[in-house]
Design a protein around this nucleic acid. Sequence first.
RNA 1: GGGGCCGUAGCUCAGCUGGUUAGAGCGCCUGCCUGUCACGCAGGAGGACGCGAGUUCGAGUCUCGUCGGCCCCGCCA
Length: 593
Amino acid sequence: MRFPKRTVYCGEVRPTDVGRRVILNGWVARIRDLGGVIFLDIRDHTGICQALIRPAQQPEIARQARHLTVESVIWLEGIVQWRENPNPALPTGLVEIATEAFGLLNPSVPPPFPISDDVPLTEEVRLRYRYLDLRRPQMQRHLRLRHRVYQVIHRYFDQQGFVEIETPMLTRSTPEGARDFLVPSRLHPGRFYALPQSPQLFKQLLMVAGFDRYVQIVKCFRDEDLRADRQPEFTQVDVEMAFVERDDVLALTEGLFAQLWQELWDIELKLPFPRLTYAESMSLYGTDKPDLRYDLRIHTVTDLFADTAFTIFRTAYQQGHVIAGIRLEGGAAYSRRELEEIAESVRPFGLPGLVWIKYDTDGWHSPVAKHLSPSEYEGLRERFQLREGDLVLLVAAPWQTCYPALGALRQTLSRRAGLISSGSPEYCFLWVVDFPLLEYSAAEGRYVARHHPFTAPLEEDLPLLDIAPEKVRAQAYDLILNGEEIGGGSIRIHTAELQQKIFTLLGISPEQARQKFGFLLEALRYGAPPHGGIALGLDRIVMLMAGAESLRDVIAFPKTTSGLSLVDGAPAPVEPEQLAELGITLVTPDQTS
RNA sequence: GGGGCCGUAGCUCAGCUGGUUAGAGCGCCUGCCUGUCACGCAGGAGGACGCGAGUUCGAGUCUCGUCGGCCCCGCCA
């Protein structure tokens, strides 16, 4: 098809173009037919430009324009001129095109929804007509931002001497970790590939191979239930470095974010990012991914209540529980009803509620006021640095319950008190380090790796491996941004002996280890350098940068909460012949196939 | 695996305790209109109330199941 090609993008027509002949290619955004004059808005990804048609002088053009439908694709030629009535709301609002000719390249049936950012749409409709949803300016912005993020990442790692290497998508299923997506093998019926949950083992092999610094922007797959911030296929910036220690990886990563923020927004991030140990993060914020855009720190005050007359706290103290709480500045203004609502946030943790104490101009107010002594009040005032008008919320429970409950309370309070300003975005990065290496899985009756089984323990904790494995800390780290985990990594085990020992600790027999991870154990014997790395969640990073609420808003073709792809209908049944070739028989044949 | 909210016109929604012929705004179609930019005005078309059972004289409305969307817990090294 031959047609007049654009000389300028719609959104880029400016007063400097006045008098020039231009050609636009784009979509009909809107037609305003006033009878004696017709306005045609033409849109492409850069914006909208108004074209003018005068039926009195151009009866044939007007006749054709009146047949146009919204979202039809056209070319349009004309002379740029000043508008009689400028529209300061538009970048192109000072000028318009005096149409001399236009042509229809492809008519459009009426779209199911207007191509605009300010119409409310259900997720279902958006995903079914994703190609129209993506035509909307906001989605265009999101995916173009994502593109720019890719470019900065590639440039940064190239500058830092990294090599991008592709690792296989058809790999072997490994125990530990999430469920795998399986791919049946036609050439080997009864055997399966697995889509990678991460290129972990391959990037370690690349370190053994001497590539020294590896990076890959790579799809990863996990067959687990979905969330607003979790998709079954997602993109990671996968990084591995040889001859490094933890702080080398952290510094390299910080440099990446500094460059992203610098290049995309001209914002200088303060480096290095703050670091908290896992233990500190849990006791100060009740979570391993705290949102530091607001303070609301947890204070532990168990010791204040050693001899208290208040039965609940005395019992807690005697049972070795923790008494801790949060101060909310100005919170004394909350009503009893509001406090009841706030208390709801700790109930899911199996707590009946919490103790609230107001410190106001006329003294202390609390349902438990009469049980507390003056010295206990004084202790609270001092610990929480209370000022008049403040509120203290206290919880008494085993520490495993107490801190997470207060972590949830922190979030509830910040929302209620509006502590996160929605106006100017604020970016609070944070490293959480020294995670426990293992955690006991009651379901499986054994220790499981908290990060993954290739994570190196802290050297100073090595002696604990044999006597108190649960106390061993790992050389693992998570990167947190505004309460979202955007990356995690570790220094890896680089000797076969230690790796074998960890497998044993995880209840993986030498036989199983040889079978499933033999290639790794073998590779580690051939001069594996000390190495470590990190995997960054690209989708989440772009989501936070775009200010989006959901991962779906920064992924071109995402899955729904139930893992369906509404645009192409995947997953779908397959022909019996395909199954036969693969040697697969369905236990419950799909009736729809 | 569990919990919550939702499904009514192309889109977004209303429809009170079950009761004539199911509504609105936007969009669409037709006509009018010379400076609009969410143009305006007049008229019109458009519905198996997601699907299937049940309760009832009667179900968009109540019950159960099912499919689909969103959010959360579990899960996600």
